[in-house]
Design a protein around this nucleic acid. Structure first.
Lengths: 348, 348
DNA sequence: CGTAAGCAGGAAATCGGTTTCATTGGCATA
DNA sequence: TATGCCAATGAAACCGATTTCCTGCTTACG
């Protein structure tokens, strides 16, 4: 009753104590009704449940969490929330979390490096688990997470010494398919890769796979065949515009693999502006298989990356680990797959 | 020391008690050093701080929250996380929250209606405030939120009886601009609106503004001028394909206002497929001014909606209300603005 | 008929902080 | 010199749950 400490405007929510006295039992019994019904006589349970309903009692998550050391909240830290890929990934994570009865705390950690103090950036102590995607090798988060004993799953990055669970995408397979597909109608020297940021894990691994796939065919990739920029249509537009302008009179035709669909859209615009036909003079393949891919003209061939599935798998892994903290680290690799549409197919 | 209740694998994090004994003070003093430094002698404070650093002490957020009734977490409930609009809104909210020292708990509440039990859906009691967007008039959340005394800001919806803070978008202005712009080169009877879901707040208010703008010019809108579907390119494609097929031999030219850019992209594809020139035979305007708008060809005119700004404003309102719970409800209206590019401009 | 076993339920410790209230000592003022 | 006040700090209540003991009863078994 002594509500000394509360501002009078805060009417104090119903607590387990209120329920207990309303049902003439102890708080222990109320708690048991909620968490371990088998331990309570059914008559008593009924009375308690009636009180709960009557008072519209909702257990205080903080108090519960303090006691059980579980909050039902999972954290997800992404380099950015922007763009269809992340948006889709987040959606997958969210719906999986909801299905498992968890809440999702998001955070775009991208710009930590700038600000300086990385601390207090993520709510350690509040979350039961954390999914992190470390595009940039800042990675101050990981040690901190390790210290705080929060289960971590690493997304789409080198599986840091195998100590964490991880979900990665098998860039090699899809990229290889794409390159081989391009080689059906384009010479190996005319195959070009336009990636995102050079430091980006996906970009790097796709570039490597691109190189490897051409090496398979006995072609050694020259530096000019690989370009790096940002994951934006603007970059694709700029790159293609310059590339098309500087091409010789040979008019040999290009095979272009873009680091994601956005870049590919930029390339498409540049071609349209320059009057270059796709797939006539340039065969184009994107990455991500975004929704627009089948809507643009020509329909864009793309390496499908299961973004939503990454998010969902991350949450699944986290949920599992919350239950069995000492299981061996699991490393999940999700497949990628070339979806061939019109932009890459030239029927002479 | 009696760690009876903890699984032996959990090594118990350092607590305020550990710091206190390390610095030979009481926990009260440690707490004061952290929250009210002015009350502690500087020599003592220094000693405590040293202990904190030494032990790498981080206050337990749950315990702190239980005591202070503040967690530093804001919730945001959206109908969906999908699509550029929501993604952008979320980004705005996230970066504003980060800047204000808050965490963001996301939740797509869309499908509550289906499942049935809306309870436990949002972490009331865990969040200091909630931004909610109620596209569908389910709205079970609002009463629950009101009951739980959590500050709420309503996004983009009727400001429910003025009891909550709200952020809305001024659809009327942008829509009106768009209609008047179309009327420069198209007759009022040929102006068409292709919206998203009929129940959607934005769709409804844009349709209303569309009707009003034409009424201004003395034209009474016929039912066929208004279509409703979903916020997808597929819908735009379908709609336009049928519309173009069924148009008479009159070949009068259309002015189309799409409910969002995705729909507009669908319309563009349909036109391309049907060999209908934009803006020659059909003037097109989208909504949202998404990133691709200036990249497609023709460049898409669009009503700019400040999505990120909505999210940021919501968070700002919430943060303010956390500090002054009893301030009068604030209703924010963000402007929309027609961005004219190529798709709507016909120079005869 | 006596005793062990088992079921229900309560008292109280605990999680890790914050905050009130009381205590102490030092210094200025009457 | 006595009194009052203030600054610095500690003891303990409190936030709202969970969980461990422990106590009474009832029932079963020898």
């Amino acid at each position: 009753m002594s509500s000394r400490r509360l501002p009078s405007s805060q009417p104090r929510a119903v607590s387990i104590e209120d329920v207990a006295s309303a049902a003439s039992v102890s708080t222990a019994t109320v708690s048991r009704v909620l968490n371990n019904p088998g331990l309570v006589a059914s008559a008593t349970a009924k009375r308690v449940q009636a009180a709960i309903d009557e008072l519209e009692y909702r257990p205080n998550i903080l108090a519960k969490g303090l006691s059980t050391r579980k909050t039902g909240v999972l954290g997800i830290a992404l380099p950015d929330i922007f763009g269809e890929f992340y948006s889709e990934l987040l959606r997958g994570a969210d719906s999986e979390a909801r299905a498992s009865g968890y809440h999702l705390l998001v955070s775009s950690e991208a710009r930590i490096g700038d600000g300086g103090h990385a601390e207090s950036t993520l709510a350690f102590g509040l979350i039961d688990g954390l999914a992190v995607m470390i595009t940039e090798p800042d990675a101050r988060i990981l040690p901190e997470a390790a210290r705080s004993k929060v289960p971590v799953v690493v997304l789409d990055a080198e599986t840091q010494g195998q100590r964490f669970d991880s979900v990665v995408v098998d860039n090699a397979v899809g990229t290889r398919e794409a390159v081989h597909h391009l080689l059906e109608s384009v010479g190996p020297a005319e195959c070009l890769f336009v990636g995102g940021p050079r430091e980006n894990f996906d970009t790097a691994s796709r570039a490597a796979a691109f190189t490897a796939a051409l090496a398979e065919r006995g072609h050694r990739v020259r530096a000019e065949q690989l370009s790096f920029g940002t994951y934006t249509a603007e970059w694709g537009l700029k790159w293609a515009t310059e590339r098309l302008a500087s091409r010789g009179t040979g008019r040999s035709c290009f095979g272009v693999l873009a680091g994601n669909d956005e870049i590919a859209y930029g390339v498409m615009q540049a071609c349209q502006d320059a009057g270059v036909s796709i797939p006539g003079e340039l065969r184009l393949i994107g990455c991500d298989d975004s929704r627009l891919a089948s809507l643009v003209r020509p329909r864009l061939s793309s390496v499908r990356v299961p973004a939503a599935e990454i998010g969902a798998a991350a949450v699944r892994l986290l949920v599992r680990r919350v239950k069995e903290p000492n299981a061996a680290p699991t490393h999940l690799t999700l497949p990628t797959k070339l979806v061939i549409r019109e932009s890459s197919v030239w029927r002479g």
